[in-house]
Design a protein around this nucleic acid. Sequence first.
DNA 1: TTGTATGCGTTATCAT
DNA 2: ATGATAACGCATACAA
Lengths: 314, 314
Amino acid sequence: MNKLTINDIAKLCGVGKSTVSRVLNNDPKVSEKTKQHVLAVIKQYNFKPSRSARAMRGIENKVIGIIVTRLDSSSENRVLRGILNRLEELGYEHFITESRFDIELVQEHLYSFEQRQIDGIIVFGFSGLGQKILQPYSSKLVAIAQYYPALTSIYYDDQGAIRLLLERLYQENYRHIGYIGIHKQDYTTGYLRYQSYMDFCAAHQLSPNACLGELNYLTGYALTAEILQQPNTDAIVCATDSLAFGVNKFLQEQQRDDIQVCSVGNNPLLKFLFPQNISINFGLFRAGQSAVELLINLLATGQKTHCCIPSNFE
Amino acid sequence: MNKLTINDIAKLCGVGKSTVSRVLNNDPKVSEKTKQHVLAVIKQYNFKPSRSARAMRGIENKVIGIIVTRLDSSSENRVLRGILNRLEELGYEHFITESRFDIELVQEHLYSFEQRQIDGIIVFGFSGLGQKILQPYSSKLVAIAQYYPALTSIYYDDQGAIRLLLERLYQENYRHIGYIGIHKQDYTTGYLRYQSYMDFCAAHQLSPNACLGELNYLTGYALTAEILQQPNTDAIVCATDSLAFGVNKFLQEQQRDDIQVCSVGNNPLLKFLFPQNISINFGLFRAGQSAVELLINLLATGQKTHCCIPSNFE
DNA sequence: TTGTATGCGTTATCAT
DNA sequence: ATGATAACGCATACAA
């Protein structure tokens, strides 16, 4: 449909195509008069220069690619909100792709972005995704949710989030706190959060009572029964909000309103359905915004930086 | 990083660059021997032709763009699952963008796709999005969730879904059925579903009791109180699962387990938390798959078609 | 079967 | 300040 080229515009204006190009690129060496004329014609015919052709000449065009792991993850969606929010303010376009924790897919998408005049990349890290896969793109890539020493990366304070929850419970005199988390193969959500719980227990002479499983509400439901085998349990900390859905459901069915449930994520639906649940804000929205900041900075200065997002009860 | 060009490969092989190009494009007019040699060198140096340059020569490359309205909509995510599922089978890449019900953003994204060597487009329609915006791209665009006469489109059976729910309730002898929906400015989820309820009531001599509001669980919660002002209400039909979250929550708090709740969407979390809720499968996953089918068919034959996805209790 | 020349829509380097 | 012209990396009609 848009078959107009810079040449057509040139003829339409009665000028050379180089002049049109100059106008397009804000070259100061063009008289105000012709500039306005060319601009008018461009607007009139709604002409847009071909990105492919521009790309061949090495022009950047304010587009960044985003590789998420799961489009239907509510936590990643929160981060995405932060990313898009900041991106929009800066006038950037975005393309989103899904990796589904598949390393090969990540590679395909990275290459695809590279080939499509994309200026920068934000990728959601996961436990299997090694640094060497991302390294070749390090000059324009920001990793999120995982720490990569040689890259620009944003990561969360997994240990701090659990610690904050535990400190609050401890302060409110809970002493028999169970923990429901996910398997340790997952380094951040699994291992780090579990370890934080164990450390806290050791430091405060609490006897630990932890169960680990998959990342979904069914697991939360099933593991609650196991945790309650410790009869004097008075609180349960969940690694994520999705687990907490299951835990709260189980407790509700058993009419156990004597047990305080805590979790990480600050999911609004969870808060609506189970208002008594204490959920900590993991800083996801802010993480998204920060990712954009760091990326823009990286593109401009080439400086690789890192940023750890703190959790809070807001 | 990938600075190799077709010319470099040609020199490396000791052949002309046109020969390399021919190998790249599976041109049969090249001897098996040189073909293998060139292929080997290409593989050795991990050479990939520039998409920008290819695009300028009008090459298609198995990529489709998807414009969703909200990335955090669970129903759109279900459709997306169907789309990506089918796309992967067919070896297509995807780029996803969000419109947030903003017509200008849709236009930007459409243009952006056009400029980036994208073969086909799937766009999620919404009430404000007119046909004329999409028309220019009709040769490679499929609209979903809304009926557009002049385009290839996939839409849901809004009226059928509500009717199926009501028929089931009627058959089970419910006679005082309330309805909680969303405002009629939304043509499909709002108007059509509401109308279907009203029609059913008229046809079966039931006195209607409907409330309309925003599309979220808070609305469902708030409107339930109004519905219950009709004291003998024995069932409530919700236009969507998200409303049903609020409705069920309200009824649970009031310990009203004498009221049957129904909704459209088949959300797994809803089923887990409120197993007694009856939710109908709106065919979202299948809609996604069909969208891809229709798009591929459109690209191949140029034939515009339509498809209405039926709901079912699976 | 293979190489040469030309064009795709830009930007950059020359002249003028 | 402006216009002709040469690249950019690739595909293709044409020549060999």
